[in-house]
Simulated assay, not measured.
Amino acid sequence: MADPLMIQPLRFDPSFEQIPDDEAETTRELVETLRSIIETTYKDYGHAVRSVHAKSHGLLQGELEVLANLPPVYAQGAFARAGKYPVVMRFSTNPGDILDDGVSTPRGLALKMIGVDGERLPGSEDAVTQDFVMQNAPAFGAPTPKKFLGMLKMLAKTTDKAPGMKKALSAVLRGAESAVEALGGESPTLRNLGGHPKTHVLGETYYTMVPFLYGPYYAKLSVVPVSASLTALTDAPVDLDGKPNGLRDAVNAFFVDNTAQWEVRVQLATDLDRMPIEDASVKWPEDESPYVTVARLTVLPQPAWTDARAAVVDDRLAFSPWQGLSAHRPLGGVMRSRKPAYEMSSAFRGQHNGCPMHEPRSAEPLPD
């Protein structure tokens, strides 16, 4: 394992991003596909939800503390100075429809830092927030926007179709995924289709999966459970039988009397071939550049999910990696193509729910 203090990060060069001639068309189709999902669920529910990660399982407020005396290469952007920031955290699962938790899919975490100063990305000039959008996998499930579009079209066809069949299929896929893991492997495809193990969402490590600028460098970020109460939940099974909202129930039960702590870690790129920007499916080797802790997250006991909280976080907040500092601009085709998709989803929800998105400027307590 490389010594973090000896890491020589690769300075980002604009030539590292290679934009295919047909990327604009791919992006248009991607947005149309996601819009078809959100329009379908709106007709079903009479209420607009996200086109992906529609179902939340934990809606939390906490504090992020940027560590003092970070090595200069890690003291960049939102982590340039020691300090404390209020945060909002949203735990979710992948699908764009609201499913029984027995349909077990990858988990997501959206993190919003509040009160961040610095030059802003276009479209977020009036905000003071920095968003990181993550999933419990170190790399994205598709290498390029075109491959992502193919996966998305397949999933769109199943939106609001045969929920009972999805639950039965999920059990079969979990068995197949267990067999793959027993041989030392892992299948993102099986997990995405419903084969994710029935484990606790709070015990997972979450990753941005795709790179973003980190000051003059580029990097990935992870949020890792470190308090004993959280690490005890890593790979811990959750009983979801007959419990359509079992994950939400488990998160609520945890935060009745537990304090949770995570570390925020950054992996700096050191080699363009081994740590590419345009292939989002590559897991960057940690033996060459380990994840290094730059901040700590603390969440105190609280009601973790309530209808009142959902009305604020699910309906009034948008989480987008394009909502933040220029020092953390998302990179690569997958992220470029997702930018208008995030914008479409939040605009659709704001319009159809009669509730414009609200970007907090200070620590506004979430309702109980």
Rank of each mutant, 00 (worst) to 15 (best):
E17K: 03
R35C: 08
D271S: 01
S124L: 00
D235T: 14
D131Y: 05
A168D: 12
V313R: 03
E278I: 09
A219Y: 01
A280N: 08
G195S: 04
P106S: 02
S170G: 12
L109H: 04
K84I: 14
E65P: 00
G164W: 15
L5C: 01
L70K: 02
T159S: 14
A139P: 13
P4V: 01
W322Y: 14
P244G: 02
P143I: 04
F12Q: 02
V87A: 05
S362M: 15
G164D: 15
L152P: 00
P106I: 02
L10F: 07
I114F: 07
Y217N: 01
V251P: 08
K43V: 14
M89G: 10
G203R: 03
S362Y: 15
D249H: 05
E65G: 00
G332W: 10
G354T: 04
A48C: 06
M209C: 03
A236N: 06
A280K: 02
P225R: 01
L155A: 15
P86L: 02
G96N: 04
D160N: 15
S227R: 02
L221G: 00
L300K: 13
L325N: 06
I38Y: 04
V264W: 06
P301C: 04
G324I: 04
L111M: 14
E125F: 07
T105K: 12
F319M: 01
M335W: 14
S281C: 07
A78W: 09
E125N: 02
K153S: 03
D241M: 14
D368R: 11
P244K: 05
